[in-house]
């Protein structure tokens, strides 16, 4: 899959697997392998899309559960909190069965496409975003309730105010969701199928290279993924300090 040119001549044999891992990470980055770039791009596309959709669902859901108290609300919160621990393979399996040609949504032919991967990761990330948002907003609601009530703010306005004032905490929630999505391998492996050039992402590529026994290349890919996550987090921090 990757053509690796080691810039640091033939000294590679002297290094152990760990050392070789860093060397192959360096050469992957230096050579800017087009295969690597497209895999990295797909990883980001799938995970960022999933996080984006999860935020659209999770933020209002969290706000709703923080603002309204109704019978069964506690139960819903417990369920949402436990869904944060959903095993990726289980989500992968469920999405596989739903999207399989023999499943209820089989007619759309979505299995083994990036869309299927986005659906699976959205299911994984939404509970994290929803549950953490609820906790943050509920804490904030204790401080704000008298003030918002005195202003006679509508329910929608109150929830919007809570979301807006918690935006910096929610940015961290978003990053937690992104971390879960980008690092996950179980679900995308099952619903994506790890097809070269189509549904191969960083984590499934790492699993594949490990299974081929190319341990140093696998580790190199892992380091590249780690650096990418670092860059995304640094960008988020930059935005935060700028507008804080």
């Amino acid at each position: 899959m990757f053509i690796i040119r080691f810039p640091i001549a033939n000294r590679i044999d002297d290094l152990d697997d760990l050392g070789q891992g860093f060397t192959s990470a360096a050469s992957l980055i230096i050579s800017l392998d087009t295969d690597l770039l497209s895999i990295l791009n797909l990883s980001l596309r799938v995970s960022l899309s999933a996080v984006f959709i999860s935020c659209i669902i999770g933020f209002p859901l969290g706000a709703f559960l923080a603002y309204y108290k109704f019978p069964g609300q506690k139960g819903l919160v417990i369920i949402l909190n436990s869904l944060m621990g959903l095993p990726p393979v289980v989500v992968g399996l469920i999405v596989y069965m739903l999207l399989s040609r023999s499943g209820p949504f089989g007619v759309f032919g979505l299995l083994y496409t990036p869309t299927a991967m986005i659906i699976a990761q959205t299911l994984l990330v939404t509970p994290i975003i929803g549950a953490l948002t609820r906790q943050i907003l509920e804490d904030l609601w204790f401080e704000y309730s008298d003030y918002l009530k005195s202003l006679e703010a509508s329910k929608i306005d109150s929830m919007a105010t809570l979301l807006w004032d918690a935006r910096f905490s929610l940015a961290t929630v978003l990053l937690a969701g992104f971390g879960r999505a980008i690092a996950e391998v179980g679900a995308v492996m099952i619903v994506g199928g790890n097809i070269d050039h189509i549904t191969r992402v960083m984590t499934t590529a790492i699993a594949l290279e490990t299974s081929k026994g190319n341990l140093s290349l696998a580790l190199g890919l892992g380091i590249v993924l780690l650096i990418t996550t670092l860059i995304v987090n640094a960008l988020a921090q930059l935005i935060r300090t700028k507008y804080n």
Binding site: L44, R45, T115
Partner: peptide, 23 residues
């Protein structure tokens, strides 16, 4: 860089996810 990042993000989400005819 922040603007570049947001434009990249938008493009990622808008781009069609897969080709029309099936392989």
């Amino acid at each position: 860089p922040i603007q570049v990042f947001f434009i990249y993000l938008t493009v990622l989400i808008i781009l069609p996810a897969e080709a029309k005819s099936r392989d």
